[in-house]
Design a protein around this nucleic acid. Structure first.
Lengths: 105, 105
DNA sequence: ATTATGTGCAACGCTTGGATTGCACATAAT
DNA sequence: ATTATGTGCAATCCAAGCGTTGCACATAAT
Protein backbone atom coordinates (compact mmCIF):
# COMPACT_ATOMS: atom_id res chain seq x y z
CA UNK A 1 0.00 0.00 0.00
CA UNK A 2 1.56 3.27 -1.14
CA UNK A 3 0.41 6.88 -0.91
CA UNK A 4 0.41 6.90 -4.70
CA UNK A 5 -2.10 4.08 -4.84
CA UNK A 6 -4.38 5.60 -2.23
CA UNK A 7 -4.58 8.89 -4.08
CA UNK A 8 -5.19 7.16 -7.39
CA UNK A 9 -7.90 5.09 -5.74
CA UNK A 10 -9.59 8.02 -4.08
CA UNK A 11 -9.40 10.18 -7.20
CA UNK A 12 -12.42 8.56 -8.86
CA UNK A 13 -15.80 9.84 -7.61
CA UNK A 14 -17.60 6.57 -8.22
CA UNK A 15 -14.95 4.75 -6.24
CA UNK A 16 -15.39 7.10 -3.31
CA UNK A 17 -19.13 6.47 -3.65
CA UNK A 18 -18.52 2.74 -3.44
CA UNK A 19 -16.37 3.32 -0.40
CA UNK A 20 -18.97 5.49 1.35
CA UNK A 21 -21.77 3.08 0.54
CA UNK A 22 -19.73 0.21 1.90
CA UNK A 23 -18.89 2.27 4.95
CA UNK A 24 -22.57 2.63 5.75
CA UNK A 25 -23.52 -1.05 5.65
CA UNK A 26 -20.53 -3.32 6.06
CA UNK A 27 -20.06 -6.09 5.28
CA UNK A 28 -21.46 -6.05 1.78
CA UNK A 29 -21.13 -7.91 -1.54
CA UNK A 30 -20.40 -6.34 -4.91
CA UNK A 31 -23.87 -7.25 -6.13
CA UNK A 32 -25.54 -5.62 -3.15
CA UNK A 33 -23.46 -2.49 -3.55
CA UNK A 34 -24.22 -2.27 -7.26
CA UNK A 35 -27.94 -2.28 -6.47
CA UNK A 36 -27.60 1.04 -4.67
CA UNK A 37 -25.24 2.64 -7.18
CA UNK A 38 -25.70 4.02 -10.69
CA UNK A 39 -23.24 1.59 -12.28
CA UNK A 40 -23.13 -2.08 -13.18
CA UNK A 41 -21.94 -4.85 -10.89
CA UNK A 42 -18.81 -5.35 -12.97
CA UNK A 43 -17.90 -1.71 -12.55
CA UNK A 44 -18.27 -2.07 -8.80
CA UNK A 45 -16.16 -5.23 -8.86
CA UNK A 46 -13.35 -3.41 -10.63
CA UNK A 47 -13.51 -0.57 -8.16
CA UNK A 48 -13.39 -2.98 -5.25
CA UNK A 49 -10.32 -4.63 -6.74
CA UNK A 50 -8.56 -1.29 -6.93
CA UNK A 51 -9.58 -0.49 -3.37
CA UNK A 52 -8.35 -3.89 -2.23
CA UNK A 53 -4.98 -3.37 -3.94
CA UNK A 54 -4.29 -0.46 -1.60
CA UNK A 55 -5.89 -2.15 1.41
CA UNK A 56 -8.79 0.27 1.70
CA UNK A 57 -11.15 -2.71 1.78
CA UNK A 58 -10.84 -6.36 2.74
CA UNK A 59 -12.75 -9.34 1.36
CA UNK A 60 -13.64 -12.89 2.38
CA UNK A 61 -15.92 -15.54 0.96
CA UNK A 62 -19.14 -16.39 2.76
CA UNK A 63 -20.80 -19.27 0.97
CA UNK A 64 -21.40 -18.30 -2.62
CA UNK A 65 -20.86 -14.61 -2.09
CA UNK A 66 -17.85 -12.43 -1.36
CA UNK A 67 -18.24 -9.88 1.41
CA UNK A 68 -16.25 -6.67 1.65
CA UNK A 69 -15.33 -4.50 4.62
CA UNK A 70 -13.72 -1.08 4.88
CA UNK A 71 -10.32 -0.77 6.53
CA UNK A 72 -9.41 2.73 7.70
CA UNK A 73 -5.65 2.26 8.11
CA UNK A 74 -4.49 3.56 4.69
CA UNK A 75 -6.73 6.58 5.14
CA UNK A 76 -5.13 7.63 8.40
CA UNK A 77 -1.67 6.93 6.97
CA UNK A 78 -2.33 9.12 3.94
CA UNK A 79 -3.88 11.82 6.10
CA UNK A 80 -0.79 11.99 8.29
CA UNK A 81 1.39 12.10 5.19
CA UNK A 82 -0.54 15.13 3.98
CA UNK A 83 -0.38 16.81 7.36
CA UNK A 84 3.38 16.39 7.50
CA UNK A 85 3.78 17.80 4.01
CA UNK A 86 1.60 20.78 4.84
CA UNK A 87 3.58 21.41 8.01
CA UNK A 88 6.86 21.35 6.08
CA UNK A 89 5.55 23.87 3.58
CA UNK A 90 4.26 26.14 6.28
CA UNK A 91 7.63 26.11 7.97
CA UNK A 92 9.50 26.91 4.77
CA UNK A 93 7.12 29.70 3.85
CA UNK A 94 7.51 31.19 7.30
CA UNK A 95 11.29 31.11 7.00
CA UNK A 96 11.09 32.79 3.59
CA UNK A 97 8.83 35.47 4.96
CA UNK A 98 11.18 36.14 7.85
CA UNK A 99 14.14 36.32 5.48
CA UNK A 100 12.29 38.73 3.20
CA UNK A 101 11.40 41.04 6.06
CA UNK A 102 14.93 40.99 7.37
CA UNK A 103 16.18 41.76 3.88
CA UNK A 104 13.92 44.76 3.28
CA UNK A 105 13.93 46.14 6.83
CA UNK B 1 -11.95 24.45 -3.29
CA UNK B 2 -13.57 21.05 -2.78
CA UNK B 3 -12.27 17.73 -1.49
CA UNK B 4 -13.11 16.31 -4.90
CA UNK B 5 -10.81 18.77 -6.63
CA UNK B 6 -7.96 18.19 -4.22
CA UNK B 7 -8.08 14.44 -4.74
CA UNK B 8 -8.26 14.83 -8.49
CA UNK B 9 -5.31 17.22 -8.36
CA UNK B 10 -3.20 15.00 -6.14
CA UNK B 11 -4.00 11.86 -8.11
CA UNK B 12 -1.48 12.59 -10.85
CA UNK B 13 2.14 11.69 -9.96
CA UNK B 14 3.65 14.41 -12.13
CA UNK B 15 1.43 16.97 -10.47
CA UNK B 16 2.58 15.86 -7.03
CA UNK B 17 6.13 16.12 -8.35
CA UNK B 18 5.48 19.69 -9.42
CA UNK B 19 4.07 20.38 -6.00
CA UNK B 20 7.03 18.88 -4.17
CA UNK B 21 9.52 20.66 -6.40
CA UNK B 22 7.74 23.95 -5.81
CA UNK B 23 7.64 23.20 -2.09
CA UNK B 24 11.42 22.97 -2.02
CA UNK B 25 12.21 26.29 -3.68
CA UNK B 26 9.31 28.69 -3.50
CA UNK B 27 8.59 31.01 -5.14
CA UNK B 28 9.20 29.60 -8.58
CA UNK B 29 8.11 30.15 -12.20
CA UNK B 30 6.71 27.48 -14.52
CA UNK B 31 9.80 27.70 -16.70
CA UNK B 32 12.13 27.20 -13.75
CA UNK B 33 10.11 24.25 -12.50
CA UNK B 34 10.06 22.63 -15.94
CA UNK B 35 13.87 22.75 -16.03
CA UNK B 36 14.01 20.36 -13.09
CA UNK B 37 11.23 18.06 -14.25
CA UNK B 38 10.96 15.44 -17.00
CA UNK B 39 8.13 17.24 -18.82
CA UNK B 40 7.72 20.32 -20.97
CA UNK B 41 6.96 23.80 -19.68
CA UNK B 42 3.44 23.66 -21.08
CA UNK B 43 2.74 20.50 -19.16
CA UNK B 44 3.92 22.20 -15.98
CA UNK B 45 1.74 25.21 -16.76
CA UNK B 46 -1.34 23.03 -17.10
CA UNK B 47 -0.56 21.29 -13.83
CA UNK B 48 -0.11 24.60 -12.06
CA UNK B 49 -3.48 25.76 -13.38
CA UNK B 50 -5.13 22.67 -11.94
CA UNK B 51 -3.33 23.18 -8.64
CA UNK B 52 -4.39 26.82 -8.59
CA UNK B 53 -8.04 25.88 -9.22
CA UNK B 54 -8.10 24.08 -5.89
CA UNK B 55 -5.94 26.68 -4.14
CA UNK B 56 -2.98 24.38 -3.61
CA UNK B 57 -0.74 27.06 -5.14
CA UNK B 58 -0.95 30.82 -5.57
CA UNK B 59 0.51 32.97 -8.34
CA UNK B 60 1.51 36.60 -8.91
CA UNK B 61 3.34 38.41 -11.67
CA UNK B 62 6.85 39.71 -11.05
CA UNK B 63 8.03 41.61 -14.08
CA UNK B 64 7.84 39.36 -17.10
CA UNK B 65 7.51 36.17 -15.14
CA UNK B 66 4.80 34.57 -13.03
CA UNK B 67 5.87 33.22 -9.66
CA UNK B 68 4.08 30.42 -7.83
CA UNK B 69 3.89 29.56 -4.14
CA UNK B 70 2.50 26.56 -2.29
CA UNK B 71 -0.44 27.05 0.04
CA UNK B 72 -0.94 24.30 2.63
CA UNK B 73 -4.53 25.06 3.63
CA UNK B 74 -6.38 22.65 1.27
CA UNK B 75 -3.98 19.89 2.30
CA UNK B 76 -4.77 20.19 5.99
CA UNK B 77 -8.48 20.46 5.20
CA UNK B 78 -8.43 17.29 3.11
CA UNK B 79 -6.32 15.50 5.70
CA UNK B 80 -8.83 16.27 8.44
CA UNK B 81 -11.64 15.14 6.15
CA UNK B 82 -9.91 11.79 5.71
CA UNK B 83 -9.23 11.45 9.40
CA UNK B 84 -12.89 12.06 10.20
CA UNK B 85 -13.99 9.47 7.65
CA UNK B 86 -11.54 6.92 8.99
CA UNK B 87 -12.73 7.57 12.53
CA UNK B 88 -16.36 7.06 11.49
CA UNK B 89 -15.54 3.75 9.87
CA UNK B 90 -13.58 2.56 12.84
CA UNK B 91 -16.48 3.37 15.11
CA UNK B 92 -18.99 1.51 12.93
CA UNK B 93 -16.74 -1.50 12.59
CA UNK B 94 -16.29 -1.60 16.34
CA UNK B 95 -20.03 -1.49 16.88
CA UNK B 96 -20.51 -4.32 14.37
CA UNK B 97 -17.88 -6.39 16.08
CA UNK B 98 -19.51 -5.87 19.45
CA UNK B 99 -22.92 -6.77 18.05
CA UNK B 100 -21.51 -9.92 16.45
CA UNK B 101 -19.89 -11.06 19.68
CA UNK B 102 -23.04 -10.39 21.62
CA UNK B 103 -25.04 -12.32 19.02
CA UNK B 104 -22.83 -15.40 19.05
CA UNK B 105 -22.05 -15.39 22.77
C1' DA C 1 -31.66 -32.75 -11.26
C1' DT C 2 -33.09 -28.28 -12.16
C1' DT C 3 -33.45 -23.48 -11.22
C1' DA C 4 -31.83 -19.33 -9.31
C1' DT C 5 -28.43 -16.42 -7.64
C1' DG C 6 -23.67 -14.88 -7.35
C1' DT C 7 -19.00 -14.57 -8.98
C1' DG C 8 -15.07 -14.35 -12.53
C1' DC C 9 -13.02 -13.47 -16.98
C1' DA C 10 -12.49 -11.21 -21.52
C1' DA C 11 -13.33 -8.07 -25.15
C1' DC C 12 -14.94 -3.78 -26.67
C1' DG C 13 -16.21 1.27 -27.12
C1' DC C 14 -15.66 5.60 -25.42
C1' DT C 15 -14.19 9.46 -22.91
C1' DT C 16 -10.78 11.93 -20.27
C1' DG C 17 -6.68 14.03 -19.66
C1' DG C 18 -1.57 14.18 -19.83
C1' DA C 19 2.02 15.73 -22.94
C1' DT C 20 3.82 17.64 -27.03
C1' DT C 21 4.52 21.09 -30.64
C1' DG C 22 4.08 25.41 -33.00
C1' DC C 23 3.25 30.04 -33.06
C1' DA C 24 1.94 34.77 -31.32
C1' DC C 25 2.40 38.24 -27.80
C1' DA C 26 4.70 40.64 -23.76
C1' DT C 27 8.52 42.23 -21.20
C1' DA C 28 13.31 42.89 -20.02
C1' DA C 29 18.20 43.30 -21.56
C1' DT C 30 21.90 45.09 -24.84
C1' DA D 1 15.79 48.92 -32.40
C1' DT D 2 17.06 44.34 -31.84
C1' DT D 3 17.71 40.26 -29.29
C1' DA D 4 16.61 37.23 -25.68
C1' DT D 5 13.67 35.38 -22.38
C1' DG D 6 9.10 34.31 -20.57
C1' DT D 7 4.21 33.71 -20.99
C1' DG D 8 -0.37 32.40 -23.32
C1' DC D 9 -3.29 30.06 -26.61
C1' DA D 10 -4.67 26.30 -29.85
C1' DA D 11 -4.39 22.02 -32.19
C1' DT D 12 -3.04 17.43 -31.98
C1' DC D 13 -1.53 12.80 -30.50
C1' DC D 14 -1.76 9.11 -27.49
C1' DA D 15 -2.45 6.16 -23.47
C1' DA D 16 -5.09 5.03 -19.38
C1' DG D 17 -9.16 4.04 -17.29
C1' DC D 18 -14.22 3.90 -16.59
C1' DG D 19 -18.17 1.41 -17.94
C1' DT D 20 -20.63 -1.90 -20.58
C1' DT D 21 -21.97 -6.45 -22.38
C1' DG D 22 -21.75 -11.37 -22.98
C1' DC D 23 -20.72 -15.67 -21.46
C1' DA D 24 -18.80 -19.46 -18.40
C1' DC D 25 -18.35 -21.36 -13.85
C1' DA D 26 -19.63 -22.03 -8.84
C1' DT D 27 -22.73 -22.45 -5.14
C1' DA D 28 -27.13 -22.57 -2.84
C1' DA D 29 -32.18 -23.46 -3.02
C1' DT D 30 -36.38 -26.27 -4.53
Amino acid sequence: MTVDQVFAALADPTRRQVLEELGRHPPCSATTLAAGLPVSRQAVVKHLQVLRDCDLVTSHRAGKEVLFDVSPTPLTATASWMTTLAATWTERLTLLKVAAERGSG
